[in-house]
Amino acid sequence: MKGFLWLRALVATFLRSLLIQGSWNYQTMIGTGFGFSMLPGLRRLFRDRPEEMEAAVERHLEHFNAHPYLASVALGASLRLEAEGDTPETVRRFKTAVRGPLGSLGDALVWATWLPLVSMSSVALYWLGLPGPWAALCFVVMYNTGHVGLRLWGFHIGLDAGRNVAVRLAGMRLTEWTARLRSWGVVVLGVLGGALLGGSGGLGDAGVLWTALAALGFVVGLLVGHQVWRPAATVVVVVIGVLAIWGTVG
């Protein structure tokens, strides 16, 4: 897998992986996007064998799901398996084996840790007085340093390790890194709480009543968890609606 043409195919595959969720659906999930991302590499591999090319496209359009950023691991590894001439059944089995771990690992690392950590940091900076555009810029730069880095690293490690990618991933101790980031996340969550309480234009300025109600809301969220989010948002919408009607009629 060397040479300029391969490099072009790899760059194209990586760029296409940014669109991997473009046709997300409940039948194949990101399977169609996976096949779409594999096309440049498959074209390079099977350029003189149209029937094999069609069969390869078909097997990569099958059902697949993983975290979108870590799907690049599976993309890189699948390209390597195809380049090494592994059987279709081996490629299928490999993809089936990695999709679950790549999904749960990515959800824990990115959605449940990295995104809230960067989001809380940026919004805390906003409530501490940083102008909105700078806070937004901080968010975009910080978040995407991790995001794009993870995608590139994933694609590289997939290409490099091929079928042994699971062993390589285990050696990276990503779960431990996630736990460390979450410890920092707790501190940043506290900073955000403090900034909302003490920052200008926040709860401190709103008065004791709103601060007490916010503390109650925090405790309810802490005790009940995710299932209270939607009812809480609905209550806010209803209260605002009632106040608006009351103000207009009264």
């Binding site: 809230p116 909302l196 009543l209 969220g221």
Partner: peptide, 25 residues
């Protein structure tokens, strides 16, 4: 000020949920 307070009451629920996600208080 009251309006900001009102909307932040709802937002504070999310902070509680997140602390729970991080392992609780």
């Amino acid at each position: 000020r009251g309006s900001v307070g009102l909307v932040l009451v709802g937002a504070s629920v999310s902070l509680g949920i997140l602390l729970r996600d991080f392992g609780g208080f």
